[in-house]
Every structure is written in structure tokens, then in C-alpha cells.
Nucleic acid binder design. Structure first.
Lengths: 180, 180
DNA sequence: ACCTGAACACCGTTCAAGT
DNA sequence: ACCTGAACACCGTTCAAGT
């Protein structure tokens, strides 16, 4: 007849595992953090993780989803500012997860789920920018400009550059879209 | 007194190893090709590779250098054409090595030698483009435009896109640099 | 349902030993 | 100088067994 026997419901344990994985993935990178280290940080045995997650990729995707949700909310806040500022905010935010981003790109080829997540992420971000570009542009031009912006953001995030270079590149990029 | 005892001088054996590695790295990717497979393709035992190369990274760098030298020559041929065409050529050529490029980006963080190779590669390609941009632009603007171009090329190379999208993006990118 | 100890398969690399 | 067989350390994952 008891309903809440366990001190830790399944969801909570899963959250602990994700918190440990997230911290280590962001700090040390996905490839450089063995399952054993995540397990130890969460106080379990490595194989226990497999009761909650299918494999290491599933853990990665769960972490990515969490990070996306958390930061999407505040991005929508920034979405009313000038485009150059939006770009700069996006780059600075993503820079905090640059190792994770490199990992996603590396694993797009090896893992279908990672590939799907990556495609979806691009779609959302690119659409958010597309709707802000001048209406006078052709659809093809808008699509091209959005790709240029997306790839530039990725480059700024994953390459080592000083803040000035990042800022100037965002401004130069946005200067093209001055409304007619 | 004999001078050329061996049927296969060291350089030749090394070249064989590099040819095997190159083929497999390009086809299957660096992470997905074990040293054992390279060894088998070259007709030796895995540990033999370590007599010729310090480690797997050294093999990778040797292959990268080879590819760079081979393609640099024909790039200089293309360098007299319009910028949009140069970009398109660069993207299409690099697309043949997209897995290798993803690997380089992933390993920049883990391997100092790979990081240095990557930086040097960027420097050379970016300078080649910088000198072709309109003289009227400020140094800062040129630097920003070159970064935008480099990152867009990288994005076009590493993401899945149809040929039309690639072509349109290169044109749109170059349209900005129309000489005043 | 939840977790563990032990094992498996795979991989890069090393090393003592051979020619 | 050049190459090998055997071993080492490490890793993701599985599985039979425990509670």
C-alpha cells in the first residue's frame, strides 16, 4: 500500500547521472571522460549507467537537450536586440560549450541520433535568423546569408580567437543586413 | 662496399604506410581505422608502424602534409579566377576530405602538433584570400571578411548540403567583395 | 526494479627478442 | 636497422547474479 517507497525516484537518479556527465563533458570533453569517471562522480558503478541510458551517446543527447532548453529561453529574450548583438550573444554562450560542439560535429558521422539532433538544432537557429532578415531579399539569398551566419558562428565558437576579433566579425557580418 | 642493399629503402616503406593510412583515413575516418588495419593494408604487423612513426597522430600529420602539398599546387592555378570560383573550387576539393577535416577540428584540442598544423593551414589560406580583397577596406574589415569566408568554407565542407546550396552560398559570399 | 563484480572485445602502444 | 609476438593499460559494453 505504500506509494513512495524509494528515497530517490528513478528520475532523480537519472538527473544525477546527467549532472555528472554534463559537468565532465563540458570541462574535459566527451571523448576524454570515461563512463567510469561519470559513474564515480555519481556514486555508482560504470555498468549502472546502462540501466538508465542506452549507451554513451544517449547520455550525450540527454545533456545536449538539457543545455538547449536552458539557453533557448534566454535566447528568445535577446531576440529583440540588433542582429549583431544577437550573434555576439550566441557566440559567447556557445563558447562555453565549445568542446561539446566539436564533439557533436565529430559524431554526426558516426551516430544517427547525434546527426538528427544537430540538424534540428541548425533548423531552429537558422529559422530564427531568417525571419529577421530584410524582406526585400530573395528566398535564395536569405538562405545563403543564414548559412553564412550559422557557419561563421560555428567557426567563431570552435576556433581560438580573442574577444575583439569575435566582436568585429559579428559586426561585419551583420553590417550586410542593414535594412533597405 | 655495396651501397643499395635493400630492395625497399626506408623512405619507400614509409610511403607505403602513408598511402595505406591515407586511403583508410579518407574513406573510413581517422577514429574508425585501427592501426591494425593500416598495418594489414601495408603488409606488416601493427607495431611495425611505430618504427616509422612516433604515434597515430604523426601518421595523420604526414598524410595531411602530403594532401596539402598536392592540392596547393593546383590551388595556385585557380587563384587567378574570380573569388566566387575560387571559393567553390576550395569547397569542392575539401569536401573530398571532409572526414579528415572533422578529425582535425576534433583533435586540435587534444594534440598540440595537430593544433599547430591547423593554425598554419588557416594562416596560409586566409592570407591568400586577404590579398585579393578590395584595397579600400580597412585592415580590420578585411580580417573579419576573411574569417567569415574561411568559416563559411569550413561549414560548407563539413555539413551535408546539395550542390546548389553550396554554389549559391559561395556566390552570395563573394558578391560582397565586388570591387568599388 | 535497481545495482554489482566479473568478464569480453577492441584499441593504441611498448618491449624484449629475433634477424 | 628492421620487424615480430606477446603483453599492458584503457575503454565501452554485457551479463549472470545479487537484493
Amino acid at each position: 500500500m505504500p506509494v513512495n517507497k524509494r528515497a530517490e525516484p528513478e528520475a532523480e537518479k537519472k538527473a544525477q547521472l546527467m549532472a555528472a556527465a554534463r559537468q565532465l563533458f563540458v570541462q574535459d570533453g566527451y571523448e576524454s571522460t570515461p563512463m567510469g569517471r561519470i559513474a564515480k562522480a555519481a556514486g555508482v558503478t560504470p555498468n549502472t549507467i546502462y540501466w538508465y541510458f542506452e549507451d554513451k551517446d544517449a547520455l550525450l543527447l540527454a545533456v545536449l537537450d538539457e543545455l538547449f532548453q536552458e539557453n533557448m529561453a534566454t535566447f528568445l529574450t535577446v531576440a529583440r536586440k540588433p542582429l549583431a548583438e544577437q550573434l555576439l550573444w550566441l557566440v559567447q554562450t556557445l563558447r562555453g560549450f565549445s568542446r561539446l560542439i566539436s564533439t557533436v560535429h565529430a559524431r554526426v558521422r558516426e551516430s544517427k541520433p547525434v546527426d538528427q539532433w544537430h540538424s534540428q538544432f541548425h533548423s531552429i537557429v537558422e529559422q530564427l535568423f531568417a525571419m529577421q532578415l530584410p524582406q526585400e531579399m530573395t528566398q535564395a539569398a536569405i538562405a545563403a546569408e543564414v548559412r553564412i551566419a550559422a557557419f561563421t558562428v560555428e567557426g567563431l565558437v570552435t576556433h581560438v580567437l580573442d574577444d575583439d576579433a569575435v566582436r568585429l566579425t559579428c559586426q561585419q557580418l551583420a553590417s550586410r543586413w542593414a535594412r533597405a
